[in-house]
């Protein structure tokens, strides 16, 4: 059943290399206008899954369709309407940015002008430079410009911010938001949970070739047994048992500087009980901070392993 607002449908996708199943039967849909994230550690199968959807690799079994077209049987028509940014791919060394965009545009029936594309990513001044003269962040921005050369409806970004410094990463996030705001559907892979939280409406968490969870970042966090983190600081030492006895609190940890970190199932009831408990025991807090858990912790809870490299 194809729903009109699904631009991507993946069903039971498997990709094996010999006996190794890089993608081991995944299914998901991406809706029009969505920013969809595939989150997972290196080697989880994110890139392979993405390349099967883009028509760059042939799945061993299962199907993928983009804009209602099968990515195997109608691969050329699919490629005409999508934009693909590969993880860390290069461009011709001896052509200027304008020349590269001009050339790539010729591969498509429909194309945007190089000047317009460079303006979108803020690289007008570099129009006559070669890729080798760009900084890491500029290279990634140029690579997004090249992805938009055919004015695509769906844009695939494979780890767009890997290896960038925090400032360049934030710039690129703004750019992704802008691409999204132009009405394009964006599918990106990342192993930075913060990136997925900031950019994505929905996230598929992948590990060892399978999707272990798929939901909005907020819902993924809410599904944790203790989705809230309460941090407090006190001058005098606090009894750990007293904190542990508070409602919905599952774990208490003591940090340096008299800080305590509580994992709680519910923010409101725990905080009010905490305040009452403090008043009754005549202790005071320097600081009280309530935050939701992160996707990092979601990943840890789902797989028992850390998301980091």
């Amino acid at each position: 059943m194809t729903r009109m607002d699904n631009v991507i449908e993946v069903n039971g996708l498997v990709k094996s290399f010999g006996t190794f199943r890089a993608v081991d039967g995944i299914s998901f849909e991406v809706q029009r206008g969505e920013v969809f994230g595939i989150l997972g550690p290196n080697g989880a199968g994110k890139t392979t899954a993405l390349e099967c959807v883009e028509g760059l690799q042939q799945p061993t079994s299962g199907t993928a369709s983009v804009l209602g077209m099968d990515t195997q049987r109608e691969v050329r028509r699919v490629k005409e309407r999508i934009g693909v940014q590969l993880q860390a791919s290069g461009y011709f060394d001896y052509l200027t940015l304008t020349e590269i965009l001009e050339l790539f545009g010729r591969f498509y029936p429909r194309r945007l002008a190089p000047g317009e594309l460079l303006a979108k990513v803020g690289l007008q001044e570099k129009a006559r430079s070669t890729v080798g003269k760009l900084s890491g962040g500029q290279k990634q921005r140029f690579s997004i410009a090249a992805t938009l050369v055919n004015d695509p409806e769906v844009v695939f970004l494979d780890e767009p911010t890997t290896g960038l410094d925090p400032q360049a990463r934030r710039n690129l996030w703004e750019l992704v938001e802008q691409v999204h705001a132009e009405g394009r559907t964006v599918v990106l892979t990342t192993h930075y949970m913060e990136e997925a939280e900031v950019l994505c409406q929905r996230v598929a968490v992948m590990d060892r070739g399978v999707i272990v969870a798929l939901d909005s970042p907020l819902n993924l966090v809410r599904r944790l047994p203790s989705p809230y983190r309460i941090r407090l600081q006190s001058r005098s030492p606090l009894p750990m048992e007293g904190l542990r006895a508070l409602p919905t609190v599952r774990e208490v940890a003591r940090g340096g500087d008299g800080t305590y970190l509580l994992q709680a199932g519910d923010a409101a009831s725990t905080v009010s009980a905490l305040v009452e408990w403090a008043r009754a025991h005549e202790v005071s807090f320097e600081q009280l901070e309530v935050k939701p858990a992160t996707l990092d912790e979601v990943f840890l809870a789902l797989t028992g392993r850390q998301l980091r490299d």
Binding site: L56, G90, Y91, F92, A146
Partner: peptide, 13 residues
């Protein structure tokens, strides 16, 4: 090495 071939493969060319 620089994935230029693969990048071209991602286009309809």
């Amino acid at each position: 090495q620089e994935k230029i071939l693969k990048r071209v493969l991602a286009t309809p060319l």
